[in-house]
C-alpha cells in the first residue's frame, strides 16, 4: 500500500532514514556478515591467519554429541515452556472472560509479571526450588517423595528453568488471549447457546477455532522467547549445568564463543540459530498474510 499524496524532496527522506540505516548496518548487518564469514573459516589461536574451510565447522558441529544434546534439550525446554504458559494463560483468560464484573481488576492483577526480567524470575524460582530452603522444593520432597536436587540432577535443573521461564510468560499470553476472546462476536456464542450447546462445547467448537490465529501467534512468540530471551534465566539459575543438562542453544553459543573463545564453533552455531529464526519469521509472515485475506 502506497500513499498517493507524498512530499517531494531530494535529500530529506534519506536524512530521515539515515539513523536507522547507520545503526542497522553497524550493529546488525556487518556483525551478521562477519559471523557468516567466520563460520566457514578456521583461525589460528592468535587470530593472525584464517583459512577457508568450506562447511567443516558445520559438519563438525552436527557430529558433536554435545551440540546434538543441546538441540534436544532446547526442543524439550521450549515445548514445555510454551505448553505450560499457553495452557495456563488460556485457562485464566477464559475464566477472566466469563467473570463479567471483575475483568479490569483481574487484568491488573495478572499483567505485571510481564514486567519482571527473566533473570529476576530466575532468582525468585531459585529460592522457591532451593533444595534446602525452598518451599516448593519442600512440598515436592514431602508430597511426592522425590529426592529433589537441581544442583546435581539434570532433570530437576531442567524443571527449574522451565518453571521460571513459563511463569513470566503466562501474563504475556494472558493479555493476547483476553484480547482475542473479547474480539469473538457475542452473537455467535448466543446462537450456539440457543441451539443448546453447553458452555464447554461452545468453548471447543466456537472459541478455540476462532482463537486459532491468536493461538498461532502466541505459540510463535513463545518459541522465540524460550529460544532466545531465556538466556538470563539459565545464566542466573544453572549456567547450563549440571553436566550440560540445561545448556540450551543460546547459552551454548555464549559459552563456546565468549567463555571458550572458539570462534569457528560459536559462529557456525550462530548461523544455525539465524537460519532457524529466519524460518520462523517467514512462516509467521506467511501465515499472517493468509489471515488478513481470510478476514478481508
Amino acid at each position: 500500500m502506497i500513499k498517493r499524496s507524498v512530499f517531494t524532496s531530494r535529500t530529506l527522506p534519506y536524512l530521515l532514514i539515515l539513523p536507522q540505516v547507520v545503526v542497522t548496518l553497524t550493529f546488525f548487518y556487518w556483525p551478521a556478515a562477519q559471523g557468516l564469514m567466520q563460520s566457514v573459516m578456521r583461525s589460528d589461536p592468535f587470530g593472525q591467519h584464517s583459512t577457508f574451510i568450506w562447511f567443516s565447522n558445520f559438519t563438525a558441529l552436527f557430529k558433536d554429541p554435545l551440540y546434538l544434546k543441546s538441540i534436544g534439550i532446547t526442543l524439550l525446554f521450549s515445548t514445555a515452556v510454551a505448553a505450560v504458559s499457553i495452557s495456563l494463560g488460556l485457562f485464566i483468560a477464559t475464566m477472566a472472560n466469563r467473570a463479567l464484573k471483575a475483568k479490569a481488576v483481574v487484568r491488573t492483577m495478572l499483567i505485571w509479571p510481564y514486567a519482571v526480567a527473566p533473570a529476576i524470575s530466575g532468582i525468585l524460582w531459585l529460592f522457591l526450588l532451593h533444595p534446602s530452603y525452598g518451599v516448593v522444593a519442600y512440598a515436592i520432597k514431602r508430597w511426592f517423595g522425590v529426592d529433589w536436587n537441581p544442583v546435581l540432577r539434570g532433570s530437576d535443573a531442567m524443571f527449574m528453568i522451565i518453571m521460571a521461564s513459563a511463569w513470566k510468560e503466562i501474563s504475556y499470553n494472558f493479555v493476547f488471549f483476553i484480547a482475542g476472546l473479547q474480539a469473538i462476536p457475542k452473537s455467535l456464542i448466543e446462537a450456539a447457546a440457543i441451539d443448546g450447546a453447553s458452555p464447554f462445547r461452545r468453548f471447543w467448537t466456537i472459541t478455540v477455532p476462532l482463537l486459532s490465529p491468536t493461538l498461532f501467534f502466541v505459540t510463535v512468540m513463545n518459541i522465540i522467547y524460550s529460544f532466545f530471551e531465556t538466556f538470563g534465566v539459565v545464566h542466573v539459575m544453572t549456567q547450563g549445568g549440571p553436566g550440560g543438562a540445561t545448556n540450551i542453544l543460546v547459552y551454548k553459543v555464549y559459552q563456546d564463543g565468549f567463555i571458550g573463545l572458539n570462534l569457528g564453533a560459536s559462529s557456525s552455531q550462530s548461523v544455525v540459530l539465524m537460519t532457524l529464526i529466519i524460518v520462523i519469521t517467514l512462516l509467521q509472515f506467511k501465515y499472517v498474510e493468509k489471515k488478513v485475506q481470510y478476514t478481508g
Binding site: 551478521a32 565468549f258 550462530s270
Partner: peptide, 18 residues
C-alpha cells in the same frame, strides 16, 4: 530483515564491533 537478527544470534561479532 533486522527482525531476523536478534543480538543472541550474533553475539561475538557484535561484541567485536562494539
Amino acid at each position: 530483515c533486522t527482525l531476523m537478527l536478534p543480538v543472541e544470534v550474533r553475539i561475538l561479532p557484535t561484541y567485536e564491533m562494539a
